[in-house]
Design a protein around this nucleic acid. Structure first.
Length: 283
DNA sequence: ACCAGCTCCTGCTTGC
DNA sequence: TGCAAGCAGGAGCTGG
């Protein structure tokens, strides 16, 4: 479900509720999500203080006592919520779906952190601190789009080597990490680039526009608390509202919102995923 | 090596 | 109303 802005919003919501606290008990109700949990996950969570929560692409990294890192991916439908402690006003946050509450952490101050994931495309692992960059899921990731490693020259270089459609390329986490279907569609619209354009046929000026579009759309979405489609919520239960800012995603048949464009948003299927774009202003 | 398509799982929406 | 098909925001794997 969630893309970079949603994961970042969840991270920001978890920090005040969880960081600095000790995991008193870890309740793990099934052996796996997408993959089996490490057999010692419970042991390596319990008794640990959460020193920091970082994000890499769509992964959350809970740093535990400088020893281990609890790696969590929300997949399509994964969701964190918490209640109790000093943040009792968010008592509605657990969502009332105990059937898919797969992992629950009881913190030493009474806060209950719950991980719910109906589709079970989520993932969890425990990594020894310092070994993150060698982890099989993290080592393949491209640059962080809002970090220093992402720049127009690198993007141009990566695109020049590819013959695939730009839409598919931007979904490839090796090229740039953290984009998903929604924000790729939105970024391409902002950059006036059609999703079926071949990467190596995109001109330098367009690559620059795309670079800025990616950064802008992600920053705006984070500022809006992510996009709430279906059941996505922030960790404290609030809804994000960037979905109201979509220019193309989910708008097939409707008018392009770009001033003086007059086009209609169309939906095509690329690599089995929906792409939304305006064939009038995106070329 | 690259790339499009398939796949995992469940729940919600759509159409007959 | 009931039921089946279709669809979903991720991403590793397979086979062309």
């Amino acid at each position: 479900m969630p893309e970079l802005p949603e994961v970042e919003t969840v991270r920001q919501g978890l920090v005040p509720a969880i960081v600095g606290k000790i995991i008193k008990q870890a309740i793990i109700r099934r052996p796996d999500l997408r993959w089996p949990f490490p057999p010692d996950m419970q042991k390596r969570l319990e008794g640990r203080r959460v020193e920091q929560i970082d994000r890499r692409s769509k992964y959350l990294l809970f740093r535990l006592d400088s020893q281990d890192v609890w790696l969590v991916h929300l997949g399509m439908s994964g969701r964190f919520s918490f209640q109790g402690g000093t943040l009792g006003q968010f008592a509605h946050a657990t969502g009332g779906d105990p059937k898919h509450d797969h992992v629950t952490l009881l913190m030493d101050d009474g806060v209950v952190l719950n991980f719910n994931d109906p589709r079970r495309f989520g993932a969890m692992d425990i990594i020894e601190a310092g070994q993150e960059s060698d982890h099989k899921l993290l080592c393949v990731l491209g640059p962080e789009p809002l970090g220093n490693g992402f720049n127009p020259e690198l993007l141009a270089q990566s695109l020049a080597m590819r013959g695939s459609a730009i839409k598919s390329a931007l979904l490839d986490q090796k090229l740039v990490a953290g984009l998903g279907n929604i924000y790729v569609c939105e970024a391409l619209h902002r950059a006036y680039i059609a999703p079926n354009r071949r990467c190596n046929e995109i001109r330098g000026s367009e690559v620059l526009a795309l670079y800025h579009a990616i950064i802008e759309v992600l920053k705006e979405a984070i500022a809006a608390g992510g996009s709430s489609l279906r059941d996505y919520r922030q960790a404290d239960g609030r809804l994000g509202y960037f979905q109201h800012g979509f220019q193309v995603y989910g708008r097939s048949g409707q008018m392009c919102l770009r001033q003086d464009c007059g086009g209609v948003i169309t939906k095509i299927i690329q690599s089995n995923r929906s792409s939304f774009y305006c064939a009038t202003c995106q070329t």
